[in-house]
Simulated assay, not measured.
Amino acid sequence: MKRKLGFTLIELLVVMAIVAALLAIVAPRYMNRIAVAKEAALKENLSALRIGLDQFYSDRGTYPEALGELVERRYLRAMPVDPVTERRDTWVPVVREEEGGRKVVRDVRSGAPGKATDGTLFASW
Rank of each mutant, 00 (worst) to 15 (best):
K4F: 08
L5C: 10
G6Y: 06
G6C: 02
G6N: 06
F7M: 05
L9A: 01
I10H: 02
E11A: 00
L12R: 14
L13W: 05
L13G: 08
L13A: 15
V14W: 01
V15C: 12
V15I: 14
V15F: 14
A17M: 04
V19P: 04
A20H: 07
A21W: 05
L22S: 04
I25A: 08
V26N: 05
A27R: 13
R33A: 15
R33W: 07
I34T: 08
I34E: 11
I34H: 05
V36Y: 09
V36L: 14
A40Y: 07
L42W: 00
E44T: 14
N45Y: 03
A48I: 02
A48V: 10
L49D: 02
L49F: 02
I51N: 14
I51D: 10
I51E: 10
G52L: 00
G52M: 06
L53G: 00
D54P: 07
Q55M: 13
Q55K: 15
Q55Y: 10
F56I: 00
R60P: 01
T62Q: 15
Y63D: 03
P64Q: 12
A66W: 11
A66F: 10
L67S: 07
G68H: 10
E69I: 11
L70F: 01
L70Q: 00
V71L: 04
R73G: 01
R73H: 02
Y75F: 03
Y75M: 07
L76T: 11
L76R: 07
L76F: 09
R77M: 13
A78G: 13
A78F: 12
M79C: 08
M79E: 05
P80Q: 08
P80K: 04
P80W: 03
D82Y: 04
V84C: 01
V84M: 00
T85W: 02
E86W: 03
R88K: 09
D89Y: 01
D89S: 15
W91E: 00
P93K: 04
P93A: 12
R96P: 02
R96V: 04
E97L: 09
E97M: 12
E98K: 07
E98L: 03
E98I: 03
E99F: 05
G100H: 09
G100R: 14
R102G: 05
R102Y: 06
K103N: 03
K103S: 12
V105R: 02
V105W: 03
R106W: 11
R106I: 15
D107R: 10
D107A: 14
V108H: 00
R109S: 12
A112V: 04
A112Q: 02
A112S: 06
P113I: 11
D118R: 07
A123R: 15
S124N: 09
W125H: 14
W125Q: 13
